[in-house]
Amino acid sequence: MADTNGNKNGFAVHVRNVTKTFGTGEAQVVALKGVDFDARMGELLMIVGPSGCGKTTLLSVIAGTLVFEAGEIDVFDSPLHRLKNREVTEFRKRNVGFIFQQFNLIPTLSILENVSVPLLINGVGRVKAEKKAREVLERMGLAGRENDRPTLLSGGQQQRVAIARALVHDPRLVICDEPTSALDKDTGAKIMELLRDVARHPDRCVIVVTHDNRVFKYADRMTEMEDGRVHKVHENYSQYEQKGNH
């Protein structure tokens, strides 16, 4: 299922007519109104738009962390809309890496342990997991900090740990929710460079949700959302800029 390399129409993520509502009755809010969306392999795709337009909801349904009511989502040819809960969890475990706005590192664990978590969840033994985590941390420039607690690191360093954690099990889809909004400009730029490097892999796709316009330039493509729908797709940042968006 999820481990096949073939991609529908050459897309890593293929979303068709997806609808998601929250609440019931008068309090019902339609967050996604028949969204169509694609993401390619080897690209860093940004989903942008104003607050409340459905960016994070779209990201959640693509990642398989939120159940949607209607539509179809294929990620690496795995039809999420047809999978059972347990299969979706299994899919996420193997194929998705997460980078969160608030880093979501577990404060009582060391950096090495935090980075090992996805491997441990995948059933890798502790020694092997920590060896791999050490290698990834070294690539992130965090060698020597393995035994520190996350709280001892700066925001940028914590986000690098989060990236290491997202990549340690070699996922094909990396989901990033506002990865730079808690960081200053320079640190944010470094993080985005890192993510762009991560995306430069033919078998990988990085999707970033952000409203931080300082980092838009790192996008290979940009999907603009408005009121629960995909409003425009820009093939590059210049196109987005030319349309007077910046």
């Binding site: 962390t65 996420r92 475990k93 969840i121």
Partner: peptide, 13 residues
């Protein structure tokens, strides 16, 4: 809860 949610997102059943 946030940490547990993160573990769940990462594929912890």
């Amino acid at each position: 809860l946030r940490n547990l949610g993160a573990l769940k997102a990462m594929g912890a059943s």
